[in-house]
Amino acid sequence: MLKLSRYVLYDILRSKVVLAYTLFLFIVSFSLFQLEENDSKAILSLLTIVLIVVPLISMIFTTIHYYNSYEFIELMLSQPLSRTRILLSEYAGVALSLLSAFLIGVGIPVLFFAFDETGLALLFTGIALTLVFTSIAFLASVKARDKARGIGAALLLWFYFALIYDGLVLLILFAFSDYPMEKFTLLLSALNPIDLGRIFIMLKMDISALMGYTGALYKDFFGSGTGVFFTLGIMLLWITLPLLWAIRVFKRKDL
């Protein structure tokens, strides 16, 4: 399995897309830290990158990679290897390359300029989102019949998690504004990894004081050990469940 992952990794590195992604992240984060007089402001701008760009790139790259190595996968299937192992090594290769791109591109500048709790929370969120969206992209590409549909589905999913979901939350909060919604929004946040990551970082930045009662509640929850474990657990669920589902579909798929 490791051998297979290594082949995948070499293949990805040869294509130079990941290198370009690394360079892009590195230049953006580095120049943000240079431009902003205040490091916490740079972190705020980086937050947008982590919440929007990282999921998008992870999704698109994974989907394209899956379809490009379709023939390689077919070849592997003719070997005495289980389908689970093949898909998992594909996942490991892609996730590892995207993760190292993120860690070099954003991790190094953050550790260099803003090595504190907020910076670490940002890195944690970035890592988790990379893994989550790689795994969702695998599900989307395994399920879709051809490349166009696969990429379309991936884009749509990204659009849903990054944008539409928040609109729906806003709609729900206004529709039920007469009721206490604090606990419910906590549940809502768990249903979208991007939102969960955003709230996790926002609370580290002490935005919670703006939120009155709601903020105090969230701070209590996310600031404690339980909150960290909650975030970690939900993120792990978001990584494993789509991947397991993808494996299930892949196993039964008529290739």
Binding site: L47, A162, L163, L170, R198, I207, M211
Partner: peptide
């Protein structure tokens, strides 16, 4: 109007 919506702060939307 609805303080709970602060949960959406810095969201893309």
């Amino acid at each position: 109007q609805n303080p709970t919506t602060l949960i959406l702060m810095r969201s893309f939307m």
